[in-house]
């Protein structure tokens, strides 16, 4: 009896039936999602990043001070009284000008994440579109784009920030705009390469046989096939952009006071480090590292989940 059941369970037809049921169609993205969820570190990082985002959005609700208010009680005695404290409501202490550091860190995190989350994807989309056109059409257009790319890379980007600041100022939206302009090359080469490879696949010819226009082919048939590259690349560019913003703020050509960003806070914290007000560096640095590390692991998880070579 048991033998018969066992034999049935071992039979090829039985296994075939089961296998047939299991191979319900999973799209590439569903598959990738499954693989991503299996990566503990990446999932944990998504959680961490969500916490940071919530902190940036709702952190203000818990602060007693606004980010530009000066607490005259501690001004002048910052080293002694300006540290983190529960009594006076400065959870993270105050900065060199006596402003609440907690509120400023919330504000800075908001700026940095916003810069990353807007400027990163937008510049990759810009670069990827150019790359796709360039790879698809080839020829003179391709050579022009590549030429511009090479020249662009040779110019130190800090110049753009300095020049832009001189002419247009440096509000948050200005900042994001410059970062996008500086980063238009992001993802260009890699998407161009992918498209050059894909455009010789026969399914592109099949689409041409339907009378599809070039742009329709690029966006309907090629784009879904390079989307995974774009996603991976975006996950790499976001932390890079945050870093870039921090760097220019650190160098003093970034965001306009009293608005701030993690980079600007780090810069201020670092300049007063020797006075013994270590919290002014510590809190922004911790948040900054947290953001970078979780973005890194998310990117890593995406790469493992999406890159066909990894399987």
């Amino acid at each position: 009896m048991i033998g018969a059941v066992k034999r049935r369970l071992n039979s090829a037809t039985f296994a075939d039936e089961r296998a047939g049921e299991m191979v319900a169609s999973r799209s590439f993205w569903a598959d990738a999602g499954r693989r991503f969820l299996r990566n503990r570190m990446a999932v944990f990082s998504v959680g961490m990043l969500s916490v940071l985002v919530l902190f940036a959005i709702f952190g203000n609700l818990f602060s007693r001070w606004s980010f530009e208010e000066i607490d005259w009680n501690v001004l002048g005695r910052i080293k002694q009284d300006g540290g983190p404290s529960l009594e006076n409501g400065h959870w993270f202490g105050v900065d060199e000008l006596g402003r609440d550091l907690y509120a400023r860190v919330v504000q800075g995190t908001r700026t940095s994440l916003l810069v990353g989350i807007i400027a990163g994807p937008v510049s990759v989309i810009l670069g990827a579109t150019l790359g796709a056109l360039s790879g698809y059409y080839g020829g003179r257009f391709d050579r022009t784009v590549l030429g511009a790319y090479t020249i662009w890379l040779a110019i130190p980007y800090i110049i753009f920030f300095v020049v832009w600041q001189a002419f247009f100022g440096r509000s948050m939206s200005q900042m994001i705009l410059v970062i996008i302009l500086v980063n238009w090359t992001a993802g260009l080469l890699i998407v161009r390469g992918q498209v050059m490879m894909l455009k010789n696949r026969e399914f592109v010819d099949a689409a041409r046989m339907l009378g599809m226009s070039d742009l329709a082919i690029i966006f309907r048939h090629l784009a879904p096939n390079v989307l995974w590259v774009v996603v991976i690349y975006t996950s790499l560019v976001i932390p890079e952009v945050i870093m870039m913003e921090s760097l220019v703020s650190f160098l003093g050509v970034g965001i306009q006071e009293p608005n701030t960003s993690l980079g600007a806070l780090l810069s201020e914290g670092a300049s007063t480090m020797t006075f013994g007000t270590l919290w002014q560096l510590g809190f922004p640095a911790a948040i900054f590292v947290l953001a970078q590390v979780s973005l890194f692991y998310i990117g890593d998880g995406l790469r493992d989940a999406l890159d066909p070579k990894e399987r």
Binding site: N10, S11, A12, A15, D16, A19
Partner: peptide, 9 residues
Amino acid sequence: NQHRFPVAC
């Protein structure tokens, strides 16, 4: 299908 070790012909 090669995902299973063959148990039959």
